[in-house]
């Protein structure tokens, strides 16, 4: 594992910690898209089917369990926790996420590394992750004002994607047979979605001002 991959995993982990912190500390999930969070649950469950068949390392196994567990905990809080669910901005979270699930699955049936149950679900999870942030980004755009922790959450998620791209560039030059075009292309698409957010994030950071997205 190279430093970029590790940095990517850590920023991914930090983003989840920031989100859990926001929900637990403020007992509020305002500004957070339940649809994006539900998509992440599907992404992790579909991708980590290999938990039972392939052992990579203790690190990989632990991280997989953490990602599955934390995404389930977030969705549970937003749906079931009495105080938290009241703060969910349902009227701002109207993205039709079923289309994303359906589209990703059809794409996985067409484009995959191997036509096996696990590989189809792996490709599906890669495609779905690429678009899973969209309901959240649309929600931020709609509400305009972004609270600090929600802004940090999306920032760290974007940083995770950026580090993964550096990781692939590094692997491409250091590993003789590294060719993961499904993951790399989807990763590029996914990271591109964050470009706009990053632009406004850095402007607000430079001006030491509250993060605001244009309507």
């Amino acid at each position: 594992m190279n430093i970029f991959r590790f940095a990517g995993d850590m920023t991914h982990l930090i983003s989840i910690v920031v989100l859990l912190l926001k929900i637990y500390a403020t007992k509020s999930c305002s500004g957070i898209s339940l649809k994006t969070q539900e998509l992440y649950v599907i992404v992790f469950l579909a991708r980590y089917l290999d938990l039972f068949t392939d052992f990579i390392s203790v690190y990989n196994t632990v991280m997989k369990l953490v990602f599955i567990g934390s995404s389930l905990a977030i969705v549970w809080c937003m749906r079931m926790h009495r105080a938290v669910k009241r703060t969910y901005d349902k009227e701002l979270d109207t993205f039709r996420h079923y289309f994303l699930v359906l589209g990703s699955f059809v794409l996985a049936l067409l484009l995959h590394e191997k036509f096996t149950f696990q590989e189809i679900f792996w490709a599906f999870s890669i495609y779905l992750e690429a678009v899973a942030i969209l309901p959240q980004l649309v929600m931020l755009q709609r509400s305009g004002n972004v609270d600090n922790l929600t802004g940090q959450y999306v920032f760290f998620l974007g940083a995770y994607r950026a580090f993964y791209i550096l990781n692939w560039i590094y692997r491409f030059f250091t590993e003789p047979h590294f060719s993961r075009w499904i993951a790399c292309l989807s990763g590029l698409v996914q990271t591109a979605f964050y470009a706009d957010f990053f632009y406004y994030y850095f402007i607000s950071w430079k001006n030491n001002a509250k993060l605001q997205l244009p309507a």
Binding site: H12, D50, D54, I56, F67, W122, Y164, H177
Partner: peptide, 10 residues
């Protein structure tokens, strides 16, 4: 032949 490599990323 294509090598079978398990998915080693998260």
């Amino acid at each position: 032949a294509v090598e079978e490599v398990p998915h080693d990323e998260l």
